[in-house]
Nucleic acid binder design. Structure first.
Length: 435
RNA sequence: GGCGCGGUGGCAGAGUGGUGAUGCAGAGGACUGCAAAUCCUUGUAUGCGGGUUCGAUUCCCGCCCGUGCCUCCA
């Protein structure tokens, strides 16, 4: 079955056909590690993890690279605010990120490069751009000269004039053109920096992804992904850098052939923002909810659509997850309609619908295979043993046997008040904490 | 202002040129001492106005509404 994806670059769905036969190579822009990941970061990780899982089912070899940005103004600011060491901060949040994403069922990328481990690659790339006349040094900075690249704007679909007209910020005086962007910037003595031909400094944001994707995947590679907000300027700038550094100016696809962008998560209809105070951290949600339920909730809307996060989203996902688990047996073949939906631009809502249909039809093997493919943990988490609750349940059973229903119901009510739900099954009572 | 995306039942959310998936919630029933869980049954929807067509929710135009991006936010 062919996998088709919507290519942001060409604005249409295209069949995925690896450039190197049988080997799909993809890169997704990962997080800047200055704080814990929020549910939006999680959506990106889950979407690309799913894409990789589907790709692995279809292609003999898949190489998935997703970076960690560990040098950035925001990290420096976070270090100043907390007094912590920069390396300690990036280390800590990288660890938390990976733990949280694992809890969401995301397999680690094949390569998770860190920007600071690729400074040399970036310097070489910047030097190449200078040599080819696409960049210039000014005031301690090295800037990419946008007018030197005629293909600029191909991804975001806007002309340079349009961007300049819409610019809301003051243009730095050292820029030759308002659209020029920083490749390398000087580092203050108390900021992290690396020696370079242009003095001690640090890389601009965009250059790291150009350097790391090229280093680990080679050029051109098949799929480049990230959040839709990265389309402009980040991905546009990556294309400009990478194409110019390699002297291919007439075809943006000589960097990455397909571009895949996931939509945003809103919370109760509002964009997540610090100013609104509605940022949902994956870490916090995982404390109260099961990772697999969160994952299913994140996949309940098509990845290119915005996803509005509400209690209802999660409630429905948890119920559906339970239904799938009930139906799942030993994994067999993924039902064709499920695979078909996933192959059609990762239509997860349709895939979930088909999986529930399979569950209802008694195709336990198909359901189990679907859950494995979609990265949904088939095992429900076990409640920790609690002798006190067990004792209360025993007392309740005795009361029921003696037809002392007032006592039995009192016990049930008491546990309910503690958030413990009792289910009476043919095999005896079970309990579970509401989460 | 520029570029883009979207408006489907109470809510979430797909698809489709020919009387509209799926889930959650709701209602009724089965089961239960009563519940819970589960199972069965079930009602309700395509923003507005034109156009193309035998026929439009689906294509085209206009309008209204919402929303994203516009130099470092996934």
């Amino acid at each position: 079955m062919d996998l088709t994806l919507y290519n942001s670059l060409t604005r249409r769905k295209e069949a995925v056909a690896p450039i190197e036969p049988g080997h799909l190579r993809l890169y997704a822009c990962g997080p800047t590690v200055y704080g814990p990941a929020h549910i939006g970061n999680a959506r990106m990780a889950v979407v690309f993890d799913l894409l990789v899982r589907v790709a692995r089912a279809l292609f003999p070899r898949v190489t998935y690279v997703s970076n960690i940005t560990d040098v950035d103004d925001k990290i420096i600011a976070a270090a100043r605010a907390s007094g912590e060491d920069i390396a300690a901060i990036t280390e800590k949040y990288t660890l938390i990120y990976n733990e949280d994403m694992a809890a969401l069922g995301c397999a680690p990328p094949d390569v998770q490069p860190r920007a600071t481990a690729h400074i040399g690659d970036m310097v070489a790339l910047v030097q190449g751009l200078l040599d080819r006349g696409h960049a210039y040094a000014a005031d301690g900075h090295v800037l990419f000269h946008v007018p030197s690249y005629a293909g600029y704007g191909a991804l975001s679909g806007r002309s340079r004039e349009e961007q300049v007209a819409g610019a809301r910020v003051e243009v730095a005086p050292y820029k030759r053109d308002p659209a020029d962007f920083v490749l390398w910037k000087p580092a203050a003595p108390d900021e992290p920096g690396w020696d370079s031909p242009w003095g001690r400094g640090r890389p601009g944001w965009h250059i790291e992804c150009s350097a790391m994707s090229q280093h680990h995947l080679g050029l051109p590679f098949d799929i480049h992904g990230g959040g839709s907000d990265l389309k402009f300027p980040h991905h546009e700038n990556e294309i400009a850098q990478s194409c110019c550094a390699h002297g291919v100016l007439d075809d943006p696809a000589t960097y990455a052939r397909m571009w895949v962008h996931n939509g945003f998560v809103t919370v109760a209809g509002e964009k997540m923002a610090k100013s609104v105070g509605n940022i949902l951290l994956a870490h916090d949600l995982l404390r109260a909810h099961e990772g697999a339920a969160l994952r299913l909730a994140l996949l309940s809307a098509h990845y290119r659509q915005p996803l509005d996060w509400t209690d209802g989203t999660l409630h429905a996902a948890a119920k559906n997850l339970a239904a799938l688990r009930r139906a799942a047996t030993e994994p067999g073949e993924v039902p064709t309609p499920v695979l078909g939906a996933l192959c059609d631009d990762l239509n997860t809502p349709a895939a979930i619908s088909e999986a529930l249909r399979a569950a209802k039809a008694g195709d336990g093997a198909g359901v189990a295979a679907t859950m494995d493919l979609m990265g949904l943990d088939r095992a429900a988490p076990k409640e920790a043993a609690d002798p006190r609750i067990d004792a209360l349940l025993q007392e309740r059973q005795a009361a029921r046997a003696a037809k002392d229903f007032a006592r039995a119901d009192a016990i049930r009510d008491q546990l309910a008040a503690e958030g413990v739900t009792i289910e009476d099954t043919p095999a005896g009572p079970r309990w579970q904490r509401s989460r």
